[in-house]
Design a protein around this nucleic acid. Structure first.
Lengths: 238, 238
DNA sequence: ACCTGAACACCGTTCAAGT
DNA sequence: ACCTGAACACCGTTCAAGT
């Protein structure tokens, strides 16, 4: 009975590239990057594996399509604001998109050639710099500087060891002190200075992300301003 | 005959974790990240696949070991220099190591928990900041800021399309101009302003890396200096 | 006790045979 | 002409059977 309904639903909504990509993103969202395989995806769609190959040439094209879905979720640049506010908001939006799809950053990086969607996104980023009065040279360097941030991620080196039971975590930290004296100095930061036994290991990654982002944006603004004052007075001249 | 010699060599140099890791690194160096598999590696060593499992628990442990080999190639911090010069040199050394082993950065990122070798490396980085007079808080933020650079890589978004024939590349660039107006503004940068037909598409990634690195280091130095002047006069106080 | 062949449960993709 | 089952050439890893 359930089977009949499923079959009817399938017939009503035929297999399309769209539907395949949506299913793939959903699968990766819940199962992680390594859970996506052509066979598994086909099964999820109630379809024979080979049916997918009518809509995507191969697995690489599937992954590209999945990345495009995520990039499309990034908000458009806000308008009527200075370049710094615009860039800041855009990048925080990109970060939110990639946090919603934790598999996306590693998939994005594994890709060789960027897709047209990704290229268009980068182009619009460049536009924000140029409209903000950057010279082409400085915009070029700025794009490289933003590098890892431009698509919303700076890789966090630690996985946030929040999985460990808290007592055990505290013990591990103190044991580490002998071997890694400098890391150990972060214990008060990790614990919270006076919150008693509130062992909240892990950093405020949102704060850290913005700290680094602002450091870079402020540095770029300094360079832009000195560029502008060196070539006359108009801050919007390229 | 050759077989006999090979067999003798194998007998003289028995299978060890060391030898497995060295072979795995060599295999990845020439074949890329995706060419490393337990079966392929075993074949390369003239050994049955299961023999590897005596020395590494599984493929993840193999990958961790390979990363450790690369990290071990990073030069120790230079001595008798200010923090900025020390940090700069260390990070450029890390970058060189990762450029020597192009597969390493993506493998490094795919790993979950960092290995003790990686942790020790990070600890020594923290030591450079602390000895340079950073407060623990600022050192903490600084480590996050360095993020993608700390291990020598900021992901380059484009693969350096140096593979394309140059005439074709130039044509592609001009076609792009309509769709991606801002990217197109980089054409003179990519071509070289007055070098005639010298179509050297691609950026000076070494220059760009140092540009970004210095932007960040200068920003951190400004913060450290204002921290120091706010808490007395001693620039080495934590 | 050690080593290893065969087997298991997967892959992405090709291809020829079926409708 | 379209669709798809079986097959191919791979995976990482388990396990029991051999020495």
């Amino acid at each position: 009975m359930a089977t009949k309904i499923e079959e009817a639903a399938r017939a009503r909504e035929p297999l399309t590239r769209e539907r395949i990509l949506r299913a793939a993103v959903a699968l990766a969202d819940e199962g992680g990057a390594e859970s996506i395989s052509m066979r598994r995806l086909a099964q999820e769609l109630g379809v024979v594996p080979m049916a997918l190959y009518k809509h995507v040439a191969n697995k690489d094209e599937l992954l590209d399509g999945m990345v495009d879905v995520v990039v499309a979720e990034i908000d458009a640049p806000i308008e009527d604001a200075d370049w710094k506010a615009t860039m800041r908001e855009r990048i925080l939006s990109a970060r939110r998109a990639l946090l919603r799809h934790p598999w996306a950053s590693s998939v994005l990086e594994s890709r060789g050639e960027p897709t047209p969607t990704v290229i268009a996104y980068i182009d619009s980023m460049m536009g924000v710099f140029l409209e903000g009065g950057f010279s082409i040279d400085l915009m070029h360097h700025a794009m490289h500087v933003m590098g890892s941030r431009i698509l919303g991620f700076s890789q966090e080196l630690f996985d946030d060891a929040a999985s460990m039971p808290q007592e055990e975590a505290a013990e591990v930290w103190t044991q580490l002190a002998d071997v890694y004296p400098n890391i150990a100095k972060l214990i008060p930061v990790a614990i919270g200075t006076h919150d008693g036994p509130a062992v909240g290991v892990g950093c405020d990654t949102q704060f850290e992300f913005e700290f680094g982002l602002d450091l870079v944006l402020d540095g770029l603004e300094r360079l832009r301003a000195s560029e502008a004052s060196a070539s006359g007075e108009d801050p919007a001249a390229s």
